[in-house]
Amino acid sequence: MFASVGAAAVGLVLAWIWYAQGEGRVPAMIAARFPRFYRLLENKYFVDEFYEAVFVEGLAKRGGRFLWEVDATVVDLIPNGTAAVTRGASWATNVFDKNVVDGAVNGVADGFQSGWRLARRAQTGRVQNYALVMGAGLFGLVAVYLIFR
């Protein structure tokens, strides 16, 4: 305790002698002789600047901005990524549905359609064709009967 009080007392005395009594000539001389040391003391050991640069700007602001980016992109991947995956899966499901499933349904219908188009060709409207088919059919039936009697 005495050391600190002593130091304060010495400082008081010196300040009184140098500034109050002596217009600051001695300190000015010291400042001229040791300019860097003087600047260090004048700027309070640059503690404020150090704090501002390292903690405020560096850690808090830059760190915060970095984490915000991380939050908005990486962490948000949980919902956004799920959304993208879901959209992709939905698109794939839609493609499957439209082509494969609906394709099968339409394929059946198309099959039927080809079927009747083919069958339609039998309706020629010409009695000669019908008579020919009837005759051929009769021949066939009799042949089958005679072979398998």
Binding site: A60, K61, G63, G64, R65, L67, W68, D71
Partner: peptide, 10 residues
């Protein structure tokens, strides 16, 4: 901590 840091730069 993370929440507080991100809050700081909003």
């Amino acid at each position: 901590v993370y929440g507080a840091m991100v809050t700081l730069v909003q």
